[in-house]
Nucleic acid binder design. Structure first.
Length: 464
DNA sequence: TACTTCGGCGCC
DNA sequence: AAAGGGCGCCGAAGTA
């Protein structure tokens, strides 16, 4: 049975109350450590600044901008770089682009330190002092909104709990080590695996996609790495799989195309030092297989034979027309139905009307419904925590994951509860979920950085 | 001075 | 035919 508008209302009503409790719980902060981090990061920024001020590039800068010189001015930076012969892209308003990706290719010592300084400034302003500002009596109480996002996802602010660094280990470690469990507790994060892909299958019903989800021996990202880089399955490495996933599969699902994917996959070869399992560098391997260069984009003809552009165009064509034709047809039908009716319905009981781009119409229903799986689970888990009189508390949520501060002796209980709710009870609640759901668990004993993957035989906590 | 917009960047 | 979805926060730039 498909949820009604009233069901949708109830979900947000209950969700609102549940998240208010999450906000009230709050997450414990190691305040002295956070203060030290602010101090030390500030010193590191000063050191880099001093180094930059001594450079020749800065001398020229001062010649040009005199006492108006400001190293933090992207306009001045762009002007200086162009004066020294760098070719940089422009923003939509015509300013010179000075973002990290554009600058990284310049390979200049000043630019390198400049980017390092910017990275630390982001850490210090947004994350370290941004968190510090909101701490009350050693606890942080981020706000979780259900009324702001066009897709019916949540958002978070004051501070935003949903965008704390994690991918850059240097920065991620510094901030996340400041998030700590209460005494005799551990931080537990339970994530849905590949939730949006699974929910998309509930809309498009593509048999091949469902097969990938159901069969643990199949691996879509490995298969696409093989195609993108012309490898045999057993020549795909962890790294080439990683780039195929993030530079081809996900972008394709979000509506990107070969003209963007190909340059990114090509860049990844150098960036990730990609090679075959046997150690043959990928560019060499590609050229042995008839792909000699990236090639270029041209609006009025196909990319040239023998280019990576042409190759990825073929891979994309095959991806949608041969591998996932049902998904492809769903996108077409879904878009046409939107054009006819002026809106579309989400599987969790919501309707979205108004003017939207094609990619939005395809992506919104998936993003919204995926989050609602998380929200329903969070509501249930919290209900049961209260009913059982447990000491453990849910302290945050990040779109497809739940973070809880779990009392040590309740750890096994909590994990059973979370797993049961997220992978079993939810499927009973919504029969439109036609694929299995799975979760990954991480437990942080000291803080939110050094969390470790938890498996059922990893019971060092339940020993006591 | 106070406000909005822009570019940039962190996450899913 | 077009061509990467969704947020919040920061400092600089722009405007009144």
């Amino acid at each position: 049975m498909i949820p009604t508008r009233k069901d949708g209302y109830k979900l947000l009503h209950d969700g609102c109350i549940a998240l208010a409790e999450v906000e009230a719980n709050g997450i414990r902060i190691d305040v002295p450590r956070l203060e030290r981090r602010i101090q030390r990061t500030g010193e590191q920024i000063k050191e880099l600044e001093a180094k930059l001020f001594k450079s020749n590039f800065w001398k020229e800068w001062k010649t040009k901008f005199k006492n108006r010189s400001n190293m933090n001015s992207p306009v001045q930076m762009g002007s200086m770089l162009e004066a020294s012969g760098c070719e940089l892209d422009k923003t939509k308003t015509g300013r010179t682009k000075t973002d990290a990706v554009s600058l990284a290719k310049l390979d200049d010592p000043f630019v390198k330190d400049f980017l390092a300084k910017k990275k630390l400034e982001k850490l210090k302003s947004t994350y370290l002092t941004g968190v510090m500002r909101e701490v009350v009596d050693g606890f942080l109480h981020p706000v979780f909104n259900l009324h702001l996002v066009s897709t019916y996802r949540s958002s978070s602010d004051s501070p935003n709990f949903q965008n704390l660094p994690i991918r850059d280990p240097e920065v991620g470690k510094i901030i996340r080590e400041c998030f700590i469990p209460r005494d005799k507790h551990v931080l537990v994060e339970v994530d849905y695996s590949a939730l949006e892909v699974r929910i998309s299958a509930c809309y498009n019903d593509d048999p091949t996609l469902i097969e990938y989800i159901q069969d643990p021996t199949k691996d879509m990202h490995r298969d696409m790495a093989a195609e993108c880089y012309l490898l045999d399955q057993d020549q795909v490495t962890k790294t080439s799989r990683f780039y195929a996933k993030n530079q081809f599969v996900f972008p394709q699902f979000y509506g990107s195309y070969w003209g963007l994917c190909a340059p990114n996959l090509w860049k990844a070869i150098d960036e990730g030092d990609l090679a075959t399992v046997d150690g043959v560098p990928l560019k060499e391997h590609l050229s042995d297989n008839g792909v000699y260069e990236l090639g270029s984009y041209n609006s009025d003809e196909r990319p040239k034979q023998g280019t990576f552009m042409r190759h990825i165009q073929n891979v994309e064509d095959n991806f949608w027309n041969e591998r996932f034709p049902v998904y492809q047809q769903w996108k077409k039908d879904w878009w046409e139905q939107y054009l006819e009716t002026g809106g579309f319905d989400i599987l969790t009981g919501f309707r979205i009307d108004g003017v939207h781009k094609r990619n939005d119409v395809i992506n919104y229903p998936v993003q919204g419904a995926a989050f609602h799986c998380l929200l329903w689970s969070l509501i249930q888990i919290q209900k049961r925590i209260r009913k059982r009189g447990m000491k453990s508390k849910i302290v945050g949520q990040i779109h497809d994951s739940i973070i809880a501060d779990v009392y040590l002796s309740e750890l096994q209980d909590y994990l059973n509860l979370a797993k049961q709710t997220m992978t079993k009870d939810l499927l009973d609640h919504w029969d439109w979920i036609i694929v299995p759901l799975d979760v990954e668990v991480e437990v942080g004993e000291e803080n939110w950085w050094n969390k470790k993957e938890w498996t059922s035989d990893n019971d060092i906590w339940s020993r006591n």
